[in-house]
Structure formats: structure tokens, C-alpha cells
Nucleic acid binder design. Structure first.
Length: 718
DNA sequence: GTTAGGG
DNA sequence: CCCTAAC
């Protein structure tokens, strides 16, 4: 099973209504428009936005006109309308019983080319709908036209717990996205560290990612039927048809309700419903289950002309991606972040009331599409994974940094504002690079958690630094004052952004892995899990860029052996992947900025990124591989790397002959140094001895050859 | 496209 | 692993 998890997601550039309409009808027809360039909107936001509106409706059941009268000057409804203590209910079947129910429906609008979809709010039969247009250049897969979200009862606080995506076009089921609370906590810490002048930053509450409680508990989750009939939304990328990622935000989320020891297989296949329980400390409890909410989104990927990119773009990969496009399923889970959003909203109502116009700007998301980005803005990406192998499943989960959003910032627009000459910034979150995890279905949830934790730790532990971006440019001069730089309280700081950047190259791999992995289709992996024991060890192997690979290959005595491309999955072959790579490694955040700013920033930085080559993920050679290499070299010699590759690593597509040559080089070096000086996974001395022997032998042969040449040549000349 | 070697 | 020169 393949799990792709993004710890954070972001997007930017969609417009939020600036005003509530005067009439009820109008009010309910709020159109959110995203910039085409972004071409994507994550389901999370979509839902969040809708939920936001729902919340308002709930709070103000009256018509908008009535509501307006109730509003304060800033237009925020009074808080007392919220019934915070009332548990959030999810009504799945008994609609009639719900006094207030909202149905979120993703509807394809117009022809397939309309490229827009709506989210309809059906409130007691009425058709309130919010229309999102241009969410994706191409939304909806042919097979998936509409998505229906389960009804949610709104109770004071909305909670759209999860968005699970699955593809109706494919039988493949999406795996679960698990978010390890720890991992997220790490992120939170990260974010909090950078936060400047935070006001009212709240700890994100732990959110549990739960299976569909209503059903899962009974059948051990996993039996929840996928409701393809309701219609799934598939966002297809028109640009290059690459599979896009799914977005889901996973804040502090943790799996609960599952037995750690339970094999994932029990739920990985059938459980496409993920329920997120969001608990709010302020409120007794609020949770919501969203069974069968499925959204599939594809992120548009722009092709880059980068030479390197091209180089690395294995045609096969492209191919695969495209092929797999249909197969891709991803689940996205919305998590507690949403909740946070609402809480924050709540706070707004409570204290600030000024930002009504900018509902969701709070989630600052920065997307950097492949074409954009240069300064580490990352497009909220998406993750797509589509293993051909049925056994493989992919999950993509992106979590948004929204969890930190508590709406406490005093000003809606930009976080920056102050009466005095202080610049107040509030960084809600930094984006954490995507992680790519592949784990056998038979692994336990517990091991999954550990794996995720490991990956997260690797990312966060790599050392980070903060970068400041102003108007799309990195501010490198640390000695300048804020004023000199243009970061002053009376300036519009919309264009100010921060980025977490790796301090060293260390983070790169991880980022890459995650990013790339998305696009690597299953096709790419000839032998998915075959030949790999589904032991925990394998799991480690799957964590690209982080842990040592403990791959246990079933060494074939003869030639070809070793890794199929599992590991290569994460390979940065994709164009998008490449670009993102650099992006990924940077955690990005921006103070609350207006939407425009968000949209604009990436653009500024567009060009630069493209040029940054993406480094392949580091894939330490396993002992098995080393053995295969040694064996091949013993036979073929040191000058025939291509043959060595074909002989022993033909199936390991991520190992080029150059890699093998390099490895041999290091092996020779390793063999010559003392054991104490060696690092990484220890190579058996026996192998090292063979390396030295073979190296000596072939060096001698080479020398002989050269001598021959030298001796013959002169003769000829003479 | 391969090799070899420095980085 | 990357990059390049050299073949």
C-alpha cells in the first residue's frame, strides 16, 4: 500500500466574496473564483468555505437582510447564535429529522469543459448553492461528475471533517490518510517558532482522524462502501494531464478507533471514508463525520522547459502518469484544521468582527505550481498516486497549516498592522513538505504511525531556516531594517512571505520524495510489492529520503535482482515534481495577506524555480544491492557499467549505470577505510573484501590492457 | 549514450 | 548524487 501524505497543504488565489449580498438569495450564491493559474482548489477549502457560509446561516437563520441588521458595524453576526455546546451531528440517513441540514454537492456545471463546479448547499430542500468556478481547468472526470457530500448538520459550529476522495473511474480504492498527531505537532511547533507577534495563537486542538464512526466501528472500518453512485469529483488537469494531488488537510490528527495492531489491509481497501473528529477544547465536543465525501482532484502541472527537468523526465514516467491518471485515487482528509477554521471564525465573531469579507484568507495557502514558484512557494499540491497494482494503494493527504488559524489576528487583511511603528506579523503556518510513504498493506497501523513519524521527524529535523520573501523576492540582506526593506507597519505587507527552508541539503530528499511520488504512477513500478516481504523493514525502505533502506530483497543468485522501482516511486521524475522539489523543501507561509497578494507572489517567483534542478532522492544501496553489484562487477569488470546495470539492476530503474559506478567507487573507498569511519548501513566485510579483490583484479586487467595498447601502438608506428 | 572522475 | 569532459 502506498500512502502519500502531505502534512500541509496550501493553495492560494481564490477569491472570496467581499461582501454579503443584501438578499438572501444573493447571499447564498456566493461565487468563489480561483485564478486560473492556480487551477486548483482543494476540496478542503471548498468545503471550508461552504461550511463557513453554513455556519453563518446557522448562526443567522434569518435572511441576510435580517442578518445585516443584526450585524455590528463590521458585519459580523453575534456570537450568541452559536450553539457551541451542541454536539455536532452527522445525519446520514434521516434527513427529515434534521432541522437544519446542509448538503454539499459538487455539481458539474455545464459541459465537461465548463471547468467549474458548484457546491450546493441544500438547506431543507432549498437550493442554496455556492458556486466555485474555475477551480480547476478541468474539473470532473468523465466518469465523475458530481460529488455529493453527506449532509451535515450544522450546529453552531461547522465541521467538515473530511473529504475523502476516491475515484469512481477506478476500482482502486484509496487508502486512508493518516496523520500522525505527532508529526503535526512538530509542524505546529515549527510554525509557532516562526510566528511573530502572534496574537491569540491557539494550539491546534488535537483532531482525530477517525474512520467513519458510524460505520466503521461496526465493521472494523474498511467496509464502508464507496459510494460511487453519488458521483465523485475528479479534477483533471487539462494542462498536462498529470494526476493531481489530492488535498486534504490534516492538522493534528491522529488515527483513533483503530487498533494499531490491526493490519492496514483491513481498512486500506475499503475504507474510503474518513471521519475526522475535531475536538474543540472550547466546546465540549464537536465532531463531524463525513462519510463518503469524495473528491478527486488533479493538479495541473505545467511542463517546464528546464533542461534538467527534461533530462529527468523519464518518458516512461510521463507515460505512466498519464496512464495512471484514471487510476488514481486519493483520499483527502480534512481534518481538524477545518475545525480550527471555524473556531477561528468564531473568534472573529466574538472579538473581531472585521473581516467578514475575507472569510478564508486565513488559510494562507500558497501554491506554487510547477511553473510558478521560485521562492519556495509551493503549490498546494496534490498528490496522486496510482499504483497499478491493486495491492497498492495510495493516499494522499495534505494537511493544511490551517490548524493554526485561530482567527485571532486582529486584522483581517494583512496580519501586519499596528498603531505604532512595530510591525506585527502573524504567521499562521508553514507548510511542511509532502511526504511519501509506501507501506505494505499488511503492516500495522502502529507501524504506519511510526513510519509517518519517522518521515516527519526527518523532515523537521533536518534543520530549517527562515526565508523572507517580499514581493516575490527573497530578502537576503539580513542587515537591512524592516523599514529599509519595506516591511513597515504602514506598508501593505501583502507581499510579505516567509518560507522555511532547509538549512542544508538534507531536507531536500524528503521533499523530493514527497513531491515526486505523487506523480509516479504505478505503472512505473513494474513489480510493485512483489518480491518484497511485507515486513516492517520494507516500510522503512519506503520512506524516501529519510531512513536507511532496509530493503530485504530476495536476492536472486543470478543477475537481475534488486529493487524494482518501488523506491523509485518517489523519484523526481515528474516535471512538476522537480519544480516542487525545491519548493517542497521549503515550508512556506505567509502572513495573512489578501488574496491578491497570495496569488501574486508565486507569479513573481515563477521563473526562478524552474531553473532549480531537482536532485534525485537519495537511495542508499542496500546490502542486497551491493552484493548484486559486487557480483556483477566481479564478472564484468569495472569498465562496463552499462552491462553491470543491465545484468544486475535492470529492474531497478532508479539505479543508473552512473549510480552503480559511483557506488562502486564508494564501495572501494569504504573497503579501504576502517570500519569505524564507515557510515550508513554497514556492508558486510565479506562483500568489501570482494570489492577490493575485484577492484584490484580489474584494475590490473585495465592496466594490462593499456600496456598492451601502448606497446602495440608504438610497434605499429614503428 | 557511456565512461571516468571531480565535486 | 550531480556535473562534465571525453569518447
Amino acid at each position: 500500500m502506498v500512502l502519500q501524505k502531505r502534512l500541509d497543504y496550501s493553495f492560494y488565489g481564490y477569491q472570496v466574496p467581499t461582501k454579503r449580498r443584501a438578499t438572501r438569495l444573493a447571499k447564498r450564491r456566493v461565487t468563489f473564483q480561483r485564478r486560473l493559474e492556480d487551477n486548483q482548489m482543494c476540496a478542503f477549502d471548498l468545503l471550508a468555505t461552504v461550511a463557513d457560509n453554513l455556519l453563518q446561516e446557522k448562526q443567522n437563520p434569518t435572511t441576510s437582510s435580517d442578518r445585516s441588521s443584526e450585524k455590528d458595524g463590521d458585519g459580523f453576526p453575534k456570537e450568541e447564535r452559536q450553539d457551541a455546546n451542541k454536539p455536532f451531528k452527522t445525519e446520514l440517513s434521516d434527513e427529515a429529522s434534521c432541522d437544519r441540514k446542509c448538503q454539499l454537492e459538487f455539481v458539474k456545471e455545464g459541459s465537461s469543459n465548463a471547468n467549474s463546479f458548484k457546491v450546493e448547499l441544500s438547506d431543507e430542500g432549498s437550493s442554496d448553492r455556492k458556486c466555485f468556478s474555475n477551480i480547476s481547468s478541468q474539473v470532473y472526470n468523465q466518469n465523475c461528475c458530481s460529488k455529493e457530500l453527506p449532509e451535515h448538520e450544522i450546529d453552531g459550529h461547522l465541521c467538515i471533517a473530511s473529504i475523502v476522495t476516491s475515484s469512481s473511474c477506478s476500482e482502486k480504492i484509496v487508502a486512508e490518510t493518516l496523520v500522525d498527531g505527532k508529526g503535526h505537532n512538530g509542524m505546529e511547533k515549527l510554525a509557532s517558532k516562526v510566528e511573530l507577534g502572534s496574537c491569540g495563537y491557539l494550539e491546534s486542538r488535537g483532531c482525530k482522524l477517525d474512520g467513519d464512526v458510524s460505520k466503521v466501528k461496526d465493521d472494523k472500518f474498511g467496509k464502508v462502501p464507496i459510494d460511487t453512485g453519488t458521483g465523485l469529483c475528479c479534477f483533471e488537469d487539462t494542462l498536462d494531464e498529470k494526476p493531481l494531488a489530492l488535498i486534504s488537510s490534516c492538522g493534528n490528527a491522529k488515527m483513533s478507533g483503530y487498533d494499531d495492531s490491526m493490519p492496514q489491509s483491513s481498512w486500506s481497501k475499503g475504507c474510503d471514508n474518513v471521519l475526522v473528529d475535531s475536538r474543540d477544547d472550547d466546546e465540549n465536543f464537536s465532531g463531524c463525520a463525513h462519510p463518503s465525501t469524495k473528491i478527486k482532484s488533479f493538479r495541473p502541472i505545467t511542463c517546464i522547459d528546464d533542461r534538467k527537468t527534461k533530462k529527468r523526465l523519464a518518458s516512461k514516467h510521463h507515460k505512466v502518469s498519464q496512464e495512471s491518471k484514471h487510476d488514481i485515487l486519493s483520499n483527502s482528509v480534512l481534518d481538524g484544521n477545518l475545525k480550527s477554521v471555524y473556531s477561528s471564525r468564531k473568534n472573529y465573531y466574538k472579538s473581531q468582527r472585521s473581516q467578514m469579507n475575507i472569510p478564508f484568507k486565513k488559510r494562507k495557502l500558497f501554491n506554487c505550481s510547477s511553473d510558478t514558484n521560485s521562492n519556495g512557494y509551493i503549490r498546494s499540491d496534490d498528490t496522486c498516486y496510482s499504483p497499478k497494482n491493486d495491492t497498492n494503494q495510495s493516499v494522499s493527504c495534505s494537511s493544511s497549516g490551517m490548524s493554526q488559524d485561530h482567527g485571532t489576528s486582529s486584522l483581517g487583511h494583512s496580519a501586519l498592522r499596528s498603531r505604532d511603528s512595530y510591525v506585527k506579523l502573524r504567521i499562521k503556518s508553514f507548510r511542511v513538505p509532502e511526504l511519501f510513504i509506501e507501506i505494505p498493506e499488511t503492516a500495522t497501523v502502529g507501524s504506519l504511525k511510526r513510519t509517518v513519524m519517522e518521515a516527519v521527524t526527518a523532515v523537521l529535523g533536518g534543520g530549517l531556516r527562515v526565508g523572507v520573501i517580499l514581493h516575490g523576492k527573497k530578502v537576503r540582506d539580513d542587515s537591512k531594517t524592516l523599514l529599509q526593506t519595506g516591511i513597515s507597519h504602514d506598508n501593505h505587507l501583502d507581499a510579505l512571505g516567509f518560507a522555511l527552508e532547509p538549512n542544508c541539503s538534507r531536507n531536500r530528499p524528503s521533499a523530493c520524495a514527497t513531491t515526486d511520488s505523487l506523480h509516479i504512477p504505478s505503472a512505473d513500478m513494474p513489480q510493485p510489492l512483489i518480491g518484497y516481504p511485507s515486513s516492517p523493514a520494507v516500510i522503512h525502505q519506503r520512506i524516501q529520503g529519510f531512513s536507511n533502506m532496509l530493503a530485504k530483497h530476495q536476492a536472486t543468485s543470478s543477475g537481475n535482482l534488486v529493487e524494482s522501482d518501488h523506491d523509485s516511486a518517489p523519484s523526481p521524475i515528474n516535471t512538476s515534481g522537480e519544480k516542487y522539489l525545491s519548493d517542497s523543501k521549503e515550508l512556506i507561509t505567509v502572513p495573512e495577506m489578501g488574496m491578491e497578494a497570495l496569488a501574486v507572489l508565486p507569479v513573481h517567483q515563477k521563473s526562478k524555480r524552474t531553473e532549480i534542478a531537482q536532485r534525485r532522492i537519495r537511495r542508499p544501496f542496500s546490502v542486497t544491492e551491493v552484493e548484486a553489484l559486487v557480483q556483477a562487477v566481479e564478472k564484468l569488470g569495472t569498465g562496463r557499467w552499462r552491462d553491470v546495470k543491465l545484468r544486475a539492476f535492470d529492474n531497478a530503474k532508479h539505479r543508473t549505470y552512473v549510480d552503480l559506478k559511483d557506488k562502486w567507487k564508494t564501495l572501494v573507498h569504504t573497503a579501504r577505510i576502517s570500519a569505524q569511519q564507515r557510515r550508513g548501513e554497514p556492508v558486510p566485510q565479506e562483500l568489501l573484501d570482494r570489492v577490493l579483490t575485484a577492484h584490484a583484479y580489474w584494475s590490473q586487467q585495465q592496466t594490462k590492457q593499456q600496456l598492451k595498447h601502448h606497446s602495440t601502438k608504438p610497434c605499429l608506428l614503428l
